[in-house]
Computed example of a mutant assay.
Amino acid sequence: MEFLGLLSFGDKGWGDELFHGLLVTLALSFATFPVAIALSFLIHWGKVSSIAPVRVAARAYTTVFKSLPEILTLLILYYQSQAAVAWVIRWVAPDRDFSMSPFLAGLIALSLVISAYGSEVVRAALNAVGRGQFEAAKSLGLSPFNTFFRVILPQLWRHAIPGFGNLWVILLKDTSLVSVIALSDITHVAELAINTTREPFFFYLVIAAIYILLVTLSSRAQRRLEQRASKGFNREEASNV
């Protein structure tokens, strides 16, 4: 009962702080993921571009952010790039200053890392769809815009959901890294609680259980999405056997 009291809401417990930290973790994850997906498509298109400098830059982007540890990317972005931008702003407008919030730094850094892997998910999904779909749409007179959004994208998601689902789980866990730049996510709150109560095992066990719950719920949601995206395709594939 003494340990449960540590999770109570109010002045005597850490329940409200942990709940707020959970909301910050979820907010960062849900804000980052759409940005990362959009960047994944842009980076893939850059890597297959007919313009050589664009192709080289996109491939370098993937190599760099897949090679750097996520925490190093976060620290470089938060400290070094913030200092560089602040220097430029002071040079242009001496009376102005610039400060990047930990939330924004985490969003940008995690988006860069996840999109580097996401571009490979897009590549594999497009290869699974096949060039024949593009050619068939072109023969029907569809524009490239309509071809992608009406023909390719609905089929692409069926192949991309498993890969993006795995990246979502990685993103959920990587949000814990923002605790090093003092964003009050669930890991940072747990560290504050540990420093106050001297109960590391209990609070680490609590946040471990929360992460396991989040990943379990995400896995179930992913399976639902896969089943929904595969409706009709499974029957068609079975009829072709």
Rank of each mutant, 00 (worst) to 15 (best):
L153W: 15
S176V: 03
V113E: 03
L6A: 03
F233E: 02
K66V: 10
I207R: 14
I210G: 00
Q227E: 10
L68I: 08
L26S: 09
E191M: 14
R131A: 03
V180H: 06
N234A: 13
E120Q: 06
S230N: 15
L4D: 12
V56Y: 12
L172I: 05
V24W: 09
A221N: 03
L42W: 02
A60Y: 09
I181Y: 06
E2F: 05
L39D: 12
D95T: 08
I89V: 12
R123W: 08
A160F: 06
S40E: 08
P102K: 11
L217I: 11
I43S: 04
G46Y: 11
S143C: 15
S99M: 07
F3N: 08
G141S: 12
T73W: 02
P144I: 02
T62C: 06
R55H: 07
S81M: 06
G163Y: 07
K231C: 03
A209C: 11
L167Q: 08
P53M: 07
S239C: 06
R220E: 04
S239G: 07
E120N: 10
R55A: 08
W45E: 10
V122G: 04
A83W: 02
A27K: 15
E135I: 09
T32A: 00
F30W: 14
P144D: 03
A105D: 08
A31L: 10
L156V: 03
